[in-house]
Design a protein around this nucleic acid. Structure first.
Length: 569
RNA sequence: CGGGGCGUAGCGCAGCCCGGUAGCGCGCCUGCUUUGGGAGCAGGAUGUCGAGUGUUCAAAUCACUCCGCCCCGACCA
């Protein structure tokens, strides 16, 4: 493509509303433009990158035995009512009515549609397993779209759904997708890692998130420095500590006046104790029933773990009225002694034998409290957020924290949707069985943005070759010098004929401007055609990433580039 | 939805406190010069100052309402 004919608006200024490097560069390099909050148009250069990535995804999905389909974006409410998500999904689901007043929604995901399709067409074990995928635009009415295409409302996603006859088959399907994902992100040249994750409201029992490592990432992850354990921070397990036999306190519980002392910090300084000698009592409203969660004062409760442990639908911190009802006191003085609620405790309470906790009486705390002696604990569980000082739950090694961008997620759905929507088949013995499902997503635009987060420098984007919109840009230093213009055009034609994707920067601009643009848009190889080199029958090839410059006779330029491109893909 | 901030030329911003009819840089157009890392000179175009209402002789500027956008929080395949 000739640069002079391209729709490629580049900018020198950093857009004021862009925070992330990837967002800034995607605007500045003319990859995309915002239409409205969380909704973007891709420009030619950006769309080429998107298609490059989609192609890699397609190749690997097909290789893994999945088949491409294309499902509707507009979906009827009935399907969502059937799965139960019409009620549960919340405001992220954009709902509307058509002219007949029928309720519809824009698909934020396609479990319902695919399950409906499959249950209508697949009747026997002979037709299983199947894995169907699509690359579709999804719409989720995010509360707060941000970071450009990283967290937006309308976005491209590859989603695949597997259907198996049993759990073992589903496990095989899951492994295949897991491996396909490893291949996809490896081919893109990304530094990523799969981490164990909570499966969230989509349901299912276990899942892995594929995280591109980046400090700007929205997700915190925890990984072991010794073994290959890695988990989303919210999921990261903490092993039950060995119980040490402690005699504990022999002192009786004592009530002390602590006027206005509510937070752990205040309690510690008021009573001159360390946070790990205090028990924090949090009252949660669990499906509208109060539950008290006890945890050592220096730790934080992981609400997801609590939710999973209790197996409830909703979990939130109790309001003042509920706190008053179960503790008989306002916020800040809750304790386990005499509380009118189920009590569960984090493992961090094991071994605590002389602690401070709220007295369930305004302006009073208790000291010398001994769990077990002074109040019963129904259950101990892993309910806290992991810290960097905790040992790895698998091998006991040291854990490290890092940040990442979630670009893919593989789920074992089990029978959540197939059961609700009656996706059944007949097995060999003619018995009706429920299909076992899995679902597997990859954020297309987000992966492209994540790629930029990992591949840029002070001058702009540095595309990995497999995702680069063009492999080569030819820059005649002055198009008004016929020698240069002709030599550049000739190279352009030769490369194009050889199937190399190349831009000829034939604009009547100063060399500096062209260099800056070439760097900004991140084309891997730039061929500079200048008067001095050309007089000696040579051209310069500059590698964007390394800055390395090769000066070659004109005849060797094409073979050189083709060889480099071949090894780079 | 709560807290904070911002809407002035295509982009980035000043002007607003202290009302008097809009400016800077980049970009854009024309011409000449220039041509290996975002050129120089000369000339030029471009704004319902986010919208509405009010106060005033007079509103970008003050007040109120609305809309949009951004940041923090809650939320989240």
């Amino acid at each position: 493509m000739r640069y002079s004919e391209m729709f490629l608006p580049t900018g020198r200024e950093v857009p004021s509303d862009a925070e992330l490097i990837s967002h800034q560069l995607m605007i500045r390099a003319g990859l995309m433009r915002k239409l409205t909050s969380g909704v973007y148009s891709y420009l030619p250069l950006g769309y080429r990158v998107i298609r490059k990535f989609e192609q890699i995804v397609r190749e690997e999905m097909n290789r893994a035995g999945a088949q491409e389909i294309f499902l509707p974006m507009v979906q009827p409410a009935e399907l969502w009512q059937e799965s139960g998500r019409w009620v549960r999904y919340g405001k992220e689901l954009l709902r509307f009515r058509d002219r007949h007043d029928r309720e519809c929604c824009l698909g934020p995901t396609h479990e319902e549609v695919i399950t409906d399709l499959v249950r209508n067409e697949i009747k026997t074990y002979r037709q299983l397993p199947r894995n169907l995928y699509q690359i579709q635009t999804k719409f989720r009415d995010e509360i707060r779209p941000r970071f450009g295409v990283m967290r937006c409302r309308e976005f491209g996603m590859k989603d695949a759904y597997s259907f198996d006859t049993d759990e073992a088959g589903a496990e095989v399907s899951y492994r295949k997708m897991f491996e396909a994902y490893q291949r996809i992100f490896t081919r893109c040249g990304l530094n990523f890692r799969p981490v164990e994750a909570d499966s969230g409201s989509i349901g299912g029992r276990y899942s892995h998130e594929f995280m591109v490592m980046a400090n700007s990432g929205e997700d915190a992850i925890c990984h072991c420095s010794a073994c290959n354990y890695a988990a989303n921070l919210e999921k990261a397990e903490i092993a039950r500590p060995a119980e040490s036999e402690t005699a504990g306190t022999t002192l009786d519980v004592e009530e002390v006046n602590t006027p206005g002392v509510r937070t752990i910090e205040e309690v510690c300084s008021f009573l001159q104790v360390a946070p790990d000698a205090v028990v924090k009592t949090l009252i949660f409203s669990v499906d509208d029933t109060p539950v008290a969660v006890l945890i050592r004062g220096d730790q934080e409760v992981n609400e997801i773990k609590v939710k999973n442990f209790l197996g409830c639908d909703s979990l939130e911190l109790a309001d003042d009225a509920m706190i008053r009802k179960v503790t008989g006191s306002p916020l800040g003085f809750a304790g386990a002694v005499g509380i009118q609620a189920r009590v569960i405790a984090d493992y961090s309470l094991l071994g605590m034998s002389d602690c401070v906790m709220g007295a369930n009486r305004e302006d009073y705390h208790l000291r010398h409290v001994k769990p077990g002696r002074d109040f019963p604990i129904a259950d101990y569980a892993d309910l806290r957020i992991i810290r960097e000082s905790d040992p790895c739950p698998r091998c006991g090694g040291e854990v490290r924290f890092a940040r990442g961008i979630e670009v893919g997620h593989v789920f074992k759905l089990g029978t959540k949707y197939s059961k609700a929507m009656k996706a059944v088949f007949l097995d060999q013995s003619g018995k009706e069985k429920i299909m076992v499902m899995g679902c597997y997503g990859i954020g297309i635009g987000r992966t492209v943005a994540a790629t930029i987060e990992q591949n840029y420098d002070a001058d702009g984007i540095v595309w990995p070759l497999p995702l680069a919109p063009y492999a080569v840009i030819i820059t005649p230093v002055n198009v008004n010098e016929k020698m240069l213009a002709d030599a550049a055009a000739e190279l352009y034609h030769i490369l194009t004929e050889k199937g190399v994707e190349v831009i000829l920067d034939d604009r009547d601009e100063r060399a500096g401007v062209k260099f800056k643009d070439a760097d900004l848009i991140g084309i891997p190889y730039r061929v500079t055609v200048g008067p001095k080199r050309l007089a000696g029958g040579k051209m310069e090839i500059k590698t964007r990433r390394s800055g390395e410059v090769a000066i070659l006779p004109v005849s060797e330029v094409t073979p050189f580039l083709i060889a480099r491109i071949r090894e780079g893909l």
